[in-house]
Each structure stands twice: as structure tokens, then as C-alpha cells.
Design a protein around this nucleic acid. Structure first.
Lengths: 290, 290
DNA sequence: CGGAATGTATTAAGACTCTTCATACGTTGC
DNA sequence: GCAACGTATGAAGAGTCTTAATACATTCCG
């Protein structure tokens, strides 16, 4: 008379995602009525209104938001449980791990890791998603249960996650090759650069960046630099495999550093498969370029 | 036809803990038969044998061990989900409070307060801004709506604010350690010291300060004293965690006193969250150093 | 060997729960 | 006032969980 069923948890997630009870029903292959009943049952069991419903659909309350986040985690753990019991029984790991990472990590860091992990666990699918590390960003994806492990820039400001630093790398100046005075070029900024680390460093320099273009993706930043639109301060990793015509200059002593690490949830560290992936990530103490 | 129910997860844990199906039934208030059925259902759903059963009871297989570990986490998450939805629904404790304070309060007074407040309201962000208490100063920030609550030196000359004294502390003389005659040193003054209180006291002494350096930040004042540039009269709170080589001397009876309090607007005292923060501030009747 | 003790498995029936169909209710826009 | 769109509800059928009763398997021991 008390526990939410898995079906109810899925209903919560679907209603939150679709915004209406009817659409959630379609997504789940259920009737609108079934979803309405399930939602009501969930609210009765938790003793709280989870969604305000009306003409415009269903909108999560604060309690609903919290419930949906937990629902994702619980369902995910059930999947992991299934995968892990299979592994323990048959001896070969199966299942899926969802990994969220910023672009340059996905391109230049993860391949090496995932090749080795894949050799050890041929039946395991790793689902890599590139997520801009803005706002709650990658850590938010993990905290909200949309990813199992995140590769992030530290520090992380999201509560309740397990987090470990992997390595540190300097920011460098990327500029068009052969330019006589890179510092006179307009600065191309990058959304994920908001970390304050580089801002603070820039503020300390007698080097007022002349113009300001702002771009979301560091790959686009590098492309723009390659086309001569300006210079940019990016983590060294972003300059790996940069377009031709892009040169990099070290910023010298006291240059800002970017710290890269991983995050996951405490529960998932109980899974041997996740643990093995984390162990493989931990071999990543030096960036690819060095 | 697929998901394990919460009841089944509890059965797994109980059987693992008790070692027999029957005992697990007793612990859960169920029949042996019910537990046997549930166990079998769980094994069918996971497609794996979880316990070897026989005369000697039930012994978990490797897969069973894995499943039980996950089961505990899942049930725990369900509890947390229940708790979190409740606090989200009732507590409403979410959002941001903007706090303005002078430097030494932010460093030495607020941490204790905010730790406790943060434990009570984990979803609330407190935004602390350090504001020099000059001119209309911190009270002005609150009056102008740029902060919700201010920690200030009293008295406050801004109209229309709610204001309460928290505690009183003496001004002390900070000087380089081991100096034979601190009173011969040049005085380092501090913008926020304009309060008149110390001026009046100085005027009453036969101690005309030889030189005058003026600095905005009391942290800088302490640093200068540490480097031997002079002595300064500062509130005792400013000397907490002062650099090495800084000594303090009480000014004795009749020494000027600094009164510390908070200010906010009448409207904000209607918010339960603000009220709770003010209540927490009111526990601050003694400064950290004493 | 045979019976008592201890433990699990199975079957069938009742209670309970979930899903569906059909329909009612409430807003919004015209 | 009516159509469009969304949710809520009541009753019935399908499905699931729990139980009592009983069967089966193993071990201990005389």
C-alpha cells in the first residue's frame, strides 16, 4: 500500500518529459486514463501533489521535480542491477553505461579509455553524449539521472556526487599561425570558459582583450581562430587536432589551469562495471598531447 | 512482466540476511510460501539463479550477492525520494538569499552560521557579497534592494530598515610583534573606521598618531601591520587569523567598542526563510575569537 | 532402514491492483 | 454556445500477490 512501482516511476518521468498526461501515455504505450490513475496513485503514496494539471498539461511542482530526479536514478539502478546479476552469473559483463563529457574529452581523452574498456567488456555498450558544461552542465546530467558518469571540469558545484580529479592542464593561447602580435587580436570567448579561472587571470594581465565574440563550442572556437577571426584562451586539450593555421602559445608561469575529473553517484560506485570504467578513467592522469 | 517490485527487493535482502526463506518470511511478516514465490519471481525476472536453496537454507550465488547490494541501494533511494518530495513540498526552501557583509564578518562570523543554515535548507543558495562599509555602505545595499540581509557595524543611518544588534566587541591595537613602543609607530587607518567612535577615543588620548596611511580593506591593514609598516586600531574580529608577526594589545578600560548587527527590510521579514536566517544570525552573540 | 526434523516447492483460491473503455468535467478560443 | 483539447472518474476484466494446505527433499540419528 506504500511503495511506488517501477511503472509509476516511468509514468512520472514520461509526464515530466512530455508535459501532458496524454502524451506520456502515448510514449509509454498506455492510455491517458492509465497514466492519470498511475500519477494519482503515486501522489497518494507519496502524500504530495507532484504535478499541477490543467488545460495546459501537467507541470511538475517542486516536489515533482525532486521525485522525477529520484525516479530516474531508481530505474537506472534497476537496469544496472539486471546487468550486474547477469555478469555475475555468466561471467561476462553486459548492459549499457551512459557517459557524458565535454567535447574535447569525448574526442581526445575517451577513445583510448573506451578501447581498453571495450576489449575487457565486449558485450557492454558505452553511450557517450557530448554535453556543454554550462550551468549545472555535465554534473547536472549525472545528478538528474540522465547519465551514469560525467567527465567534467572541476570544481563541481552540484551536491551529492562522487567526484575525483584526474589531471590538471594549462590554458594556452590559440592564435592564427604567423601573426606578428597575437595579443592585438580580438578575443574569441567560449561559453564554458565562465569558470572564473581564466577571467581572473585575464583581469590580472595588462592585456585588455579588444573585441569579444562568444561561441558555445570550443571546436568552433578553434575553427574561427584557424580562419583568422581572432585568438582564444582554451584548455590545451581543446587544441589537439586543431585546424591547420592554428598555433598555440603557452601562457607561462602563473597561467590558469583547468582541472579535469569525473563525477558519478554514490550508488553507482557499487556496480563492478562502473567501478571498472572509473579505474580505467583514472589511468588518464596525463592529457593526450603531452 | 519484467520489473522487480519493492516487495521482492525486500525479500532478497531478508533472505540474504536471515539465511533461510522461512526466517525471512518471519522477519517480513509473510509466509514462507510468499517468500518462496517472491524469490522465484525475482529470479525469473532477472533470468538468473540468485540463491541456492536446500536443506541448509538459502545461500546467495554471486549473482545473488550483486542483486542484494543493488536492492539495498534501490530501497534506500526510494526512502530518500519520499523524504525529498516531502521537504520540497512543505519546506518550499529553495531559491537564493543575498547577504552583504564586511570582510571580517564574511570570513570569521558567517561560515558557522551558513553551515547550519545550509544543513537546514540544502536547496537554498546563499550569495555572500563582501561590501566595504563606507558611505551608505552595506545598509545602502539592502535599502537599494541589492542585498536581502546585511551584516553591519551599528549604528545605521539609513531610514526604513529593520535593524538589530548582535554583539559588541572592543577595538584593539594591532602592531608588529616585539616592537618596543607600538605607540611610536605610524598609524594605519582604515576607511571603514570613520565611525567616529575610534576618532573620539583617539582625540581623548595624549597620543597623537605620527603618520597616516589609509587603506580600504581591513585585511590589507593587517597585512601591512605584519610587514612592520605601522600599527592600527581595528575591531578585534579583524585580528582573527591575522598574519604572523601581528600582535594585539587591548586598549583597556574605556576603549572604543564596535557594535555589530544585521539589517534587512520590513517586507523580507515576512519570508520564513529570511526569518530563519535571521534567527541563526541571532545566535552570533559572541565573536568567533572569544 | 525408517521416521522425525527442518527446509523449500507447488497448487488453487481469494484479495488486491492495474489497465481499459466509455464518459464526464473544466478551460480556452472563436 | 460550441468545438478543441486536456484531465478525471467509475466499473469491469485481466493480471498479480498472498495464503493455506500439502508435497517434496535432505539430514540426523537410533
Amino acid at each position: 500500500m506504500n511503495d511506488l512501482t517501477a511503472a509509476e516511476l516511468r509514468v512520472l518521468i514520461a509526464v515530466d518529459g512530455e508535459g501532458t498526461v496524454s502524451a506520456a501515455g502515448a510514449r509509454l504505450g498506455l492510455t491517458q486514463s492509465a497514466v492519470s490513475h498511475a500519477l494519482r496513485a503515486a501522489e497518494r503514496k507519496l502524500g504530495t501533489v507532484l504535478f499541477h494539471r490543467g488545460r495546459g498539461g501537467a507541470q511538475a511542482t517542486a516536489a515533482g521535480e525532486a521525485a522525477v530526479g529520484h525516479a530516474r536514478h531508481i530505474l537506472r539502478l534497476m537496469e544496472v542491477m539486471r546487468a550486474d546479476t547477469h555478469t555475475a552469473a555468466r561471467g561476462e559483463a553486459t548492459g549499457t553505461i551512459r557517459l557524458a563529457a565535454f567535447r574535447s574529452a569525448a574526442f581526445h581523452l575517451l577513445p583510448r579509455v573506451l578501447v581498453r574498456f571495450g576489449q575487457r567488456h565486449p558485450k557492454v555498450t558505452v553511450d557517450v553524449r557530448i554535453v556543454p558544461d554550462l550551468g549545472r552542465g555535465i554534473a547536472g546530467e549525472v545528478a538528474d539521472g540522465r547519465a551514469d558518469v560525467g567527465v567534467v571540469s572541476l570544481p563541481v558545484y552540484v551536491e551529492g556526487l562522487v567526484c575525483k580529479e584526474l589531471y590538471e592542464e594549462p590554458y594556452v593561447l590559440a592564435h592564427p599561425t604567423g601573426h606578428p602580435d597575437p595579443r592585438s587580436l580580438p578575443m574569441i570567448d567560449w561559453h564554458e570558459n565562465c569558470s572564473g579561472e581564466t577571467r581572473r587571470w585575464l583581469a590580472m594581465q595588462e592585456w585588455i582583450p579588444p573585441g569579444d565574440i562568444t561561441v558555445e563550442d570550443d571546436g568552433v572556437v578553434m575553427s574561427m581562430v584557424g580562419h583568422g577571426l581572432g585568438a582564444a584562451i582554451v584548455p590545451r586539450l581543446s587544441t589537439v587536432d586543431a585546424p591547420p593555421k592554428v598555433a598555440t602559445t603557452e601562457l607561462g608561469d602563473g597561467s590558469p589551469q583547468r582541472r579535469v575529473g569525473y563525477v558519478t553517484t554514490r550508488e553507482l560506485t557499487g556496480s563492478p562495471l562502473i567501478r571498472d570504467l572509473l579505474a580505467e578513467l583514472r589511468t588518464l592522469r596525463a592529457p593526450a598531447g603531452t
